[in-house]
């Protein structure tokens, strides 16, 4: 695998795997992440995937070397990264996200439809039939940067951001779609809401989604939403 290494400070290194957002590079990011997940270097504190990069934070004091810890880190990482083969990438995990579209859960659905000269039903149809991939998690705990939305339903951010967007809201901002894991202010156009919890602070992994996951949005009715929500809270 080809890569470049650069420091992100005196306690971290960034592995660069490409320059553009693409499935190929995403798979490389995944491959490197799963290697780092399983590695046993005692100097690794954690790793953080980006769109085309993976950052590795390390403890410079835990590296035994006569040279600079950074050099040793690069040497050890390189030895492993060179051997990684993107071809044998694992199949992405498919996560279904039920969404109740429109109504009070998706107050901007009609606006998104109008803007694109579509009916609200068509927007739902296009949104729920898309093939999505989670490129990375960032911005807020469990927040997925999702690629693959059909440009026919693109819509600019709201001019007046909402002060409170409820957790679970599914929105569109430009050519991106996303789900808010926690209540935050934000300017996304809201088209629906999922009863699933994306941020699970008590869970083994605090995020429902992970970089590399494939997502399917599944339309559900308001009744189904209530039932889901009850079972989520059990």
């Amino acid at each position: 695998m080809e890569f470049k290494l650069q420091p992100l400070g005196d306690n971290s290194v960034i592995i660069e795997l490409g320059e553009d957002i693409s499935r190929d590079i995403q798979q490389k990011v995944n491959k490197v992440s799963s290697f780092l997940e399983k590695q046993s270097f005692d100097w690794v504190i954690e790793y953080v995937p980006g769109f085309t990069t993976v950052a590795v934070f390390y403890d410079p004091c835990k590296i035994e070397t006569n040279t600079l810890p950074y050099e040793q880190v690069c040497e050890e990482l390189s030895a492993h990264l060179e051997k990684l083969d993107v071809e044998e990438g694992a199949k992405p995990r498919v996560v279904e996200i039920p969404v109740c579209y429109g109504g009070e859960f998706g107050p901007d659905l009609e606006e998104v439809a109008e803007r694109n000269e579509l009916t609200p039903e068509e927007v739902i149809d296009i949104h729920s039939n898309g093939e999505y991939i989670v490129y990375m998690i960032g911005f807020a705990p469990g927040f997925p940067y999702i690629g693959g939305m059909d440009e026919r339903i693109a819509a600019p951010r709201r001019k007046n951001p909402r002060l409170k967007i409820p957790a679970g809201s599914v929105g569109i901002a430009g050519k991106q779609t996303g789900v808010y894991p926690i209540e935050t202010p934000g300017g996304w156009q809201l088209i629906g809401k999922t009863p699933l919890k994306l941020f699970l602070p008590e869970g083994d992994t605090p995020s429902l989604l992970q970089a590399g996951d494939q997502i399917k949005f599944v339309p559900i009715s308001e009744e189904e939403f209530q039932k889901w929500e009850e079972s989520e809270n059990d």
Binding site: L8, G9, I14, V48, A55
Partner: peptide, 10 residues
């Protein structure tokens, strides 16, 4: 610029 990790003191 594509989003990527940041550090304390960036």
């Amino acid at each position: 610029m594509l989003s990527e990790a940041v550090n304390f003191g960036t």
